[in-house]
Each structure stands twice: as structure tokens, then as C-alpha cells.
Amino acid sequence: MDFLLTFLRSMPGAVGQGLIWGIMAIGVYLTYKILDVADLTVDGSLATGGAVCALLTVNGANPATALVCAVLAGMLAGLVTGLFHTACGIPAILSGILTQLALYSINLRIMGWVGWGADNGTKATLAVSVDKNHLLVSSRYIRELGLQNPLLPLGIFVVVTIAVLYWFFGTELGASIRATGANRSMARAQGINTDFNVVLGLMISNGLVALAGGLLAQYQGSSTIDMGRGAIVIGLAAVIIGEVIFGKVFHNFGLKLFAAVLGAIIYYIVIQLVLRLGLDTNDLKLLTALVVAVFLAIPYWKGKYFRARVKPAGSTSEGGNGNA
């Protein structure tokens, strides 16, 4: 009974974390599923979003300004990765890794910023306090009923994000980005500038990831240099969980994005559960990596062994592109 109670008491926190990481997962969905690019920038750009948001917040900026600047910083990171990939011809995965590595130094500098002409150093954490600073969301009020409960603004953020993306990917430009991800040669034959679209997609994705980073810094009361470590895996986990559970029922694009958010919430609920069951926090990343690896392998195994037995001969390559 005790176990159940503490588990239930941890639910609001899990949902709060899940909503924030859900926005991050939407960013991952855009690159991984729509653009067909594995973008590893996100581990860095999540922390960049957190660092920028925290820095501006401790310097007295209002939450809106801080979050907008976090998004812009994330988009800049996406731009760099995009240019590494398109203008410099570096493979997408490596481009993301390069930016992510560079961002580690940059994030330390951002958090250590004091002022123009001052003796600027580096810092690995930057705390924001709901007592001293103006915050939009804080985990302190997660179990309180009322307007200061962060679940309300986080929910609004998720809904608005999905609505805006739904609109954008229905426009001519958005449709051309989808085409770029679906089939580059077709896109170019239809007059679509695929390089530009890849860069734009990476910018939007990393902007969302940095937004999640900014919200996370406010929510947990600090920005840390390693807050983005393994973010890509958590994002992928959320996308995959969402797809496995809701893929059969959610066909609308907006609902698919929502499935990624639900996937993130489920992920954090499961995390809470295994922690309550006695798993060491330090083993979490191992568990996450294994879960994601298994879920990524399942469709491959299915295709390899299942198909080989069911279709003996004759039928050739039909319908290999069933996803997204």
C-alpha cells in the first residue's frame, strides 16, 4: 500500500517531466521520422536551451524572453549542423556529433557569462530560484492545485506546439519538407531545394529541443552542463513508445506528434516505477539504451525472419516504406 501511495504521489512529477520531454520528443520526431535524418545535435542543444534560459532568467529577464532566446539559440545550433551536412558534405550523424561537442564548450561559457568586458569564466551549473527569479514553471508546485501548478502552462505549450506544427507541415513549404524526407530525388525533380529544407528542418527541431531545455531548467531550478546527456535516446524512446502504443489508432499528423508526447509521459511513469522498485538511478541510462535498442531492432527482425517464412518466392520488393 505504501509503495502504491508513493508511486501515485510521484505521478504529477512524471507527467510534468513527460510533457517537457514530450516537446523534445516532437523535435526528435521531426528529424528522425519526417526528415529521415538522425540528428545528434539535440544532446547539446537541449543544454544550450537550458543555459540560455537560466542565464537570462538570473539576469532578470521575463520567462517569455528567456524562452524565446533559448529557442533562437537552439535554431542556431540546428543551422550549424545543417550547414556542416549540406554545405560541407559531412554525414548527418557526424555533423550532429560535431555540433554537440562544440556546444559543450559553448554551454559552459554561456553559464559562466557575467557581463560585457567582465571576467567571464565557465560554469557547469547555473541555478534559478522560484523565490528570486521570475519563472513560468517550477516543480515545487507540481502537487498543488492552482494556477502556479506547472502542468497547466506545460500542457498549453504542448498543445500550441502541436497546433503550430500541424499548420506548418500542411503548408506548401512544410509539405516540401515532408517530401524531402520521404524521397530526396523526387523532391529535387519537383523543384524543391532539399538542402535548404534539411537545414530548415534541423533548425525547427533544435529550436523545439532548446525550448524543452529552457522549460526543464526552470522546472528543475537549474541548468546543468550534462542535462542533455543521452537526450537523443530519451527522445527516441518517447517517439518509439508513442508509435508502438498509438501507431495503430493515430493516423492524423497532429495525433502522431501527440503520440510522441504521450510516449514521453509513459517513459517517465515507467522510470518512476522502476526507481520505486529499487533500480539505482545510475543504471537508468543503461536501461533506457537497452529498451530503445530492442524497440529499434523489432521491426528489423520482423522484416527479416517473419517475411522470409511467410513469402517464399516470387513476390519482390513491395511496400517496404510503411512507416511515418
Binding site: 500542411g170 503548408t171 506548401e172 513549404l173 512544410g174 523532391a187
Partner: peptide
Amino acid sequence: AATMQIEENLALAARRGQRRGLRWG
């Protein structure tokens, strides 16, 4: 584009050579 609808594919082709903006696709 395999993951897009028949009409979406045609709409993409109909905009070949034009600037693609924020009008509905």
C-alpha cells in the same frame, strides 16, 4: 513520395518552379 498521399504528390508537382510559401499545401 511513398509516405505522402496521391493528391499531395500531385500538389507538390503542381508547384514545381514556384516559390513555396506558407499558403496551404
